[in-house]
Write a protein that binds this DNA or RNA. Sequence first.
DNA 1: CCAGATCAATCGAAAAAACCGAATATTAAG
DNA 2: CTTAATATTCGGTTTTTTCGATTGATCTGG
Lengths: 298, 298
Amino acid sequence: MSKPELNYKHLHYFWTVAKEGGVARAAERLGVSPQTISGQLGKLERDIGRTLFTQVGRRLELTEAGREALRYADEIFLLGERLREALDEPALGQASRLTVGIADSVPKLVAYKLLAPVVEASPQLRLVCHEGEFDELTSALSRHKLDIVLSDRDLGQAQQRRLVARRLASCPIGIYAARSLLEKPGAARNIADFSHAPMLLPSKRTSMRTRLDVWMDAEGLTPNVVGEFDDSALLTTFGGNGAGYFPAATVLTEMLSRQYDAELVIELSDVNEGYYAISLPSRLPNLHVARLLQSALP
Amino acid sequence: MSKPELNYKHLHYFWTVAKEGGVARAAERLGVSPQTISGQLGKLERDIGRTLFTQVGRRLELTEAGREALRYADEIFLLGERLREALDEPALGQASRLTVGIADSVPKLVAYKLLAPVVEASPQLRLVCHEGEFDELTSALSRHKLDIVLSDRDLGQAQQRRLVARRLASCPIGIYAARSLLEKPGAARNIADFSHAPMLLPSKRTSMRTRLDVWMDAEGLTPNVVGEFDDSALLTTFGGNGAGYFPAATVLTEMLSRQYDAELVIELSDVNEGYYAISLPSRLPNLHVARLLQSALP
DNA sequence: CCAGATCAATCGAAAAAACCGAATATTAAG
DNA sequence: CTTAATATTCGGTTTTTTCGATTGATCTGG
């Protein structure tokens, strides 16, 4: 019974060749001669008893076995890299950077409140924040460019196999308006009036919009939509300056009052905004990612 | 900027030493001399700039850095092993075995119905089934002794970081009784009568029991419990032979009628039994595991 | 269509790494 | 105290990796 251990050096050459798309480029990248790569690659193929590449023209192409092997090699060398990084950290197990993507639709204040406990727990942590659209961020997450993504949307069915989402908090939604708007004659003060009031809404793709549409439908409202926004901060800015009635999570009430002089007009008790942390399903999570996920409310 | 590549051979020695608990045992296992291990281990420590072991007495003990490294090494060499296995399969990407754990509380017929599509899709697949208690099975799953676990229970909060559960199907519960029991004078036929009827129930820890307790409480029933069972098959056998009224998922109605001559007495429309597939959060799932998870109902 | 350039594979020799035998130091057990 | 078990260090040997030179195939530009 032969059981030759897998040669990880050979596998690493194979992986580099596949990534770089050729023996020559891989050799340059690794600082060795192409003959070396070619020879060791041959050994690997003999060891495992499968051809990994076929020579088509003067180019190498992955075989089916090669593609399969590459999937594993990707994981293996990613882990190796992270092992190295983990051991390079002065404080063991505590990565010194946490790279987080924040969806445009998440209010900055909410993002702050979610991240604050993590930052406080590790004073020397460097937090790196990126903003963007949901798809953009989850894609960056898959490519290991981000450690975690904060969003107001759950994952779609298709993504649930590659990523995991965890609901961190939820908050009822309210309709707000700047005091300047409310002091005008004939200002809307209750549900019935909203049919004619100027309304600012999140754009179609957001989950909050969907739920608001359902609510307005149920209440029989056909509001006068004067603006749609992708970015919740922009929506708030317009709304806070009196451009129209606007929805926001009720955690923001105090901030809206202080910063924009805007008031809660009505709270939609059964329309909730959920906030999710989306991460890769790693069994070796970054300490800070683990803390963030654990901070989920019951 | 120094960036010496991680030496996986050294890491493998380190991993084996940690697993076997000593240089000597590791050397024997790997078929090399202890000096070799010791030397290569020293090189690894110099390469990464951390001591991995401290010599306490004549034994080696992992340092903090060592424990951290070991977590990664575990993943890496598990992947290496699986890479080898995957490439050994005659049909690429199709593991020829699927090892599944089935919780005692899952009816055999349900397990069959859930697994049948997977088996049919791959005729040459060898299915290996183990039964046991929930904790036993999830533990085996964590140690990679099982590919997947079928259960009627969702994961607890604590386990959700290491394992993922997916609801595959759900089914309303009914109360059944053998015809022989129903033909006796004064047999229970509706809710009110159950207070005095002999009742068989799942044991305390199962999720079905919890929900049944809630239901009975809501209906004001204080049944005469004549038996509690861990294993749903055993419960069904007792119930089917007339030992008492017993609960079961309504998918089983036909089977119960044919095999035991038992009848559905009442269907609890708002008490549902959910069936879950629990697996490791791997990004490289076994094809069959992937199929099973994908077969979830909407 | 041909000449030069590019690429991967092969071969044998040189370099590097891994390995082992003997010896040492330390510790636990009898 | 002696003995057995353990990890380590030091030299020399063996194995593996690497490279230079070469070959054969393929693409590109004139």
